[in-house]
Computed example of a mutant assay.
Amino acid sequence: MNSMLLRTALITGIVIGALNIVFAGLQYGFGTLPVWFYLAQLLLIPAMILPMRFFPQAAMTRDFARRAAMFGLGWAVPYAIYKFAGDVLNPNFNPAASLISYLVMVLVFAVLFATIRKPQN
């Protein structure tokens, strides 16, 4: 992985983790956030680094379904950490609803990125 891609993955993981802490802190109060929630945000760094290779490959793939699948795979793990860490804080946490919402959003990310990032002719 080249240094620019690695730097992008690191920055993206840090920004997503920081936003998740800010949003959860504003919703539930920073003092009430458990330590595991902060530690879970650290998982976003490797979660962005490992699938980062999917994004450049997906951007070069002509077939829409394969391109969408690659973008979906690239966003699946980082979004799972972001989504489930925040959802579990809710006292009315419903695992089935959280999973369905996660799957729908990964599908939306996949289709959106595949549409926006289609290869040039």
Score class of each variant (00 low, 15 high):
Arg62Ser: 15
Ile14Glu: 04
Met105His: 14
Pro34Ala: 04
Asn2Glu: 15
Thr8Val: 02
Ile16Gly: 00
Gln27Trp: 06
Met4His: 15
Ala9Asp: 15
Thr115Phe: 05
Phe84Lys: 05
Phe71Trp: 11
Pro51Arg: 08
Phe55Thr: 04
Ile100Ala: 06
Met4Cys: 13
Pro91Arg: 09
Ile45Ser: 03
Asn121Leu: 10
Phe113Ile: 05
Leu99Tyr: 12
Tyr28Cys: 02
Arg117Ile: 00
Ile45Cys: 05
Leu6Ser: 06
Gly29Gln: 01
Ala69Gln: 03
Thr12Phe: 02
Leu42Ile: 02
Thr32Ala: 12
Ile49Val: 15
Lys118Val: 02
Asn92Val: 09
Leu99Arg: 05
Phe54Tyr: 14
Leu19Arg: 09
Thr32Val: 02
Val22Thr: 05
Val106Thr: 01
Pro51Ala: 11
Trp75Glu: 10
Ala58Ser: 04
Tyr28Lys: 07
Val15Thr: 14
Pro119Gly: 05
Phe84Arg: 04
Arg7Ile: 08
Ala9Met: 12
Leu107Gln: 00
Pro78Phe: 08
Pro95Lys: 05
Ile100Pro: 00
Ile45Met: 10
Arg53Asn: 13
Ile11Phe: 15
Asp87Asn: 13
Asn121Met: 10
Pro56Arg: 00
Ala114Tyr: 01
Ile21Lys: 01
Leu44Glu: 11
Val104Ser: 00
Ile16Val: 14
Leu6Thr: 08
Met48Asp: 07
Phe93Asp: 10
Ser98Trp: 04
Lys83Asp: 07
Asn90Lys: 07
Ala69Glu: 03
